[in-house]
Amino acid sequence: MESLVRLKNVTVRYRSNGRRYLTAVSNVDLGVSPGEFVAVVGRSGCGKTTLLKVVAGLIKPDEGEVAYSERFFNGSKKKIGVMFQSPLLLPWRNVLENILLPIEIIGEDPANYVERALILMERTGLRGFEYSYPWELSGGMQQRVALCRALIHRPQLLLLDEPFSSLDAITREEMWVLLESVFLYENYTTLLVTHDIREAVLLSDRVVVMSGKPGRVKTEVEIPFKRPRNISLQYSKEFNEYVAKIKSMLSE
């Protein structure tokens, strides 16, 4: 199947201390098919965030190229939704206004998206908080707002950079369930970068394992569990075999 986005032989170098170059990622080939949920796992500093930034168009690769499918991005403007480790909400805007920010950026009328925002808020358990301000919400709630904001403009590609790593274990599991349900409702093509192997196995169709210094794709593991996936899946024997297998690949 044609990839929605494909990295071909991508190498990225950072200049450190002015003259020495540090290779962040080296010769990475990675394709994400439409509707697929791909997770990239690796230790801290293995270049997985760099990879995500390349896909988002924030970093130009020094070698290789990023190819976006013309067919799926309808030629014109590619719509990407992003969510990072911190919610990055604007404190002068209430929850609803924060969620509608991407609409203003793509130059459409926010009024036409209020209904969709309310539906997303309903699904993420945020109803009733439309006019609250970010600082009035807990960390988990703030991340839900960030998720709604990432989805409001119906992006063709959703990029998640360790979105739940700053949350406590219980809230994190809630967010997994939430993301799974949203993924089923709207079926986004998703690229998730994480160091949490359980998170990757639970949510994704395919786990890309990276090794560090410089970052390379070590191997890929297909995750065959049927959707909708349940949080109790993580207690099954098969699930834990996948987790153990990926963990051993990471520590090699």
Partner: peptide, 16 residues
């Protein structure tokens, strides 16, 4: 920087 990158990912211009 992170906020800036998020906005650019959404397609924001410098003026926006």
């Amino acid at each position: 920087k992170e906020l800036w990158e998020m906005l650019v990912s959404f397609g924001a211009s410098k003026k926006q």
